[in-house]
């Protein structure tokens, strides 16, 4: 059985084909971009640690993200379990956790990670949402290279 794919337009990659079963659904969008609900993860390049979370509805919109299980295994966002219901689950251990990286213009070495607003994905139903971690150490602009080396300290 062949994979269902669809073509999408993107600013960074031009027109690309995405597999429909890879499409993520954010029922509440992402903060500040609440109107866009459908995204797909695209690896920056083969074997890259980074991915673009590309909007299917706005070709200009993509977020640079990393998976915390791989890069920040100590990172455990503090989230009210009942808020996980937007993903159709109650158990945070069933989710994939990704954080958004901000790269200051022309200064990739100063890239920061948003630890306060992680993205959680339910891999079983492809639902996703942005959450707020109640842990005060999870700041919105954490120096990414530093925390990769030293950990988060929480």
């Amino acid at each position: 059985m062949t994979q269902s794919t669809m073509k999408i337009a993107t600013k960074r990659f031009g027109n690309i084909e995405v597999e429909e079963d890879k499409i993520l659904h954010f029922p509440e969008g992402i903060f500040a971009f609440e109107e866009y609900q459908r995204y797909v993860l695209i690896s920056v390049k083969e074997k890259s640690e980074f991915y673009w979370l590309q909007s299917l509805e706005n070709s200009d919109l993509a977020f640079l993200v990393v998976n915390t299980a791989i890069h920040l295994p100590d990172y455990r966002p503090e989230i009210e379990e009942e808020f996980l219901s937007v993903l159709g689950i109650e158990d945070i251990t069933q989710t994939e956790c990704w954080i958004i990286i901000t790269v200051p213009q022309g200064k990739p070495n100063e890239m920061t990670a948003n630890l306060q607003g992680p993205l959680l994905i339910n891999p079983k139903n492809r639902k996703a949402a942005q959450f707020v971690s109640a842990n005060e150490k999870h700041i919105v602009r954490a120096p990414f290279l530093e925390i990769l080396q030293k950990g988060i300290g929480s």
């Binding site: 992402i30 903060f31 500040a32 971009f33 920056v44 390049k45 074997k47 890259s48 640690e49 980074f50 919109l61 993509a62 977020f63 640079l64 958004i100 990286i101 901000t102 790269v103 213009q105 990739p108 070495n109 890239m111 948003n114 607003g117 942005q130 919105v140 602009r141 290279l145």
Partner: peptide
Amino acid sequence: ENIEAAKSEIPDDIDDI
């Protein structure tokens, strides 16, 4: 922060960083 993040551009060799 999300609005700033959406403006991110990266060099080709970002993984080397």
